[in-house]
């Protein structure tokens, strides 16, 4: 049976109000913690490190009172790709992976298909990375209102503003992008439905046939882009009508202040990441 309700489940950028410790942390502390952990996720290839990272991110999600099931449902639309990619990494990348990651031992072979210790590691680590990343980005965006996220990014970029970096503008771009991910996700769902209603043969039935052809891409992606551009025009008008004049000299009604829990969170994340990275070749 077809399911159109897939992109609605994109959870990134959707703020879920709450009173947890994570919700109350300063946005800059949260951004720092998440960035540090993303670095650990990105640069580790050891099983131990990823087990620790998975446990930690799940623990943080629990601490923030965010429902794991909801966050994980965000990968549903991508499941076919993820599986296909995983299978390919496992069987086809053996040679390349063996040298890239430690593990030249051949575990299984049938004709050209070969699983090496390296390709197995690559496959499992990529899957773990995808999940950890989703959990981390959700942790940040589901537990932080968009406005404080903007102030956070902006205030962290401020030292670079002296070098001519447009801190306020860049943080605004990032915030608009995050804010509109769920909106466009829902929009994409409506487009799928509208095109299916007028005869587009989308074959959504098979999970492995998500977008099959260039033609389907046109039918779905063109309205998506046009809608995004239309929304952009509306937003431009709205901002200009409210005399939006950029960051300089603009006062905020939110004053950010780092407190003890913020420092503790950042210090712990720093220690964790440093440990994982320092030991990344020593751990199994």
């Amino acid at each position: 049976m077809e399911s159109f309700e897939v992109f609605r489940h994109v959870t990134i950028g959707q703020y879920l109000p709450g009173e947890s410790l994570v919700h109350r942390l300063d946005p800059r502390a949260k951004i720092t913690v998440v960035l540090l952990l993303i670095a650990a996720v990105t640069f580790s290839t050891s099983y131990t490190a990823h087990l620790a990272l998975l446990a930690l991110t799940l623990g943080l999600i629990a601490l923030a009172n965010l429902p794991v099931r909801y966050i994980v449902s965000g990968v549903k639309p991508a499941l076919p790709f993820i599986l296909l990619l995983a299978l390919m990494q496992l069987f086809v990348y053996g040679e390349a992976a063996a040298s890239a990651v430690r593990g030249t031992a051949v575990l299984w072979q049938w004709g050209v298909l070969r699983v090496t210790a390296g390709s197995l590691r690559l496959t499992l680590v990529s899957l773990a990375r995808l999940l950890e990343l989703l959990l981390l980005v959700s942790l940040l965006t589901n537990a932080t209102p968009t406005t404080s996220l903007t102030y956070g990014i902006e205030s962290m970029l401020r030292p670079f503003a002296r070098l001519g970096l447009p801190a306020h503008e860049l943080s605004l771009i990032g915030t608009i992008a995050l804010r509109f991910v769920p909106v466009l996700g829902e929009q994409f769902e409506t487009i799928l439905k509208a095109q299916a209603s007028r005869g587009a043969n989308l074959r959504l039935g098979g999970r492995l046939q998500f977008i099959r052809s260039a033609q389907q891409m046109v039918v779905l992606l063109v309205p998506l882009f046009l809608n995004a551009l239309l929304r952009a025009e509306d937003l431009i008008l709205a901002m200009e009508a409210r005399c939006y004049g950029g960051g300089r000299g603009r006062s905020h009604y939110v004053r950010l202040r780092l407190r003890a829990p913020d420092y503790v969170a950042m210090a712990l994340a720093l220690v964790f990441t440093a440990a994982v990275l320092a030991a990344r070749n020593a751990l199994p």
């Binding site: 950028g13 995004a228 551009l229």
Partner: peptide, 14 residues
């Protein structure tokens, strides 16, 4: 920002 949102949508869901 808006086209970046599409990039995130396509990238995060792969």
């Amino acid at each position: 920002g808006l086209l970046g949102a599409i990039t995130i949508l396509l990238g995060a869901t792969r």
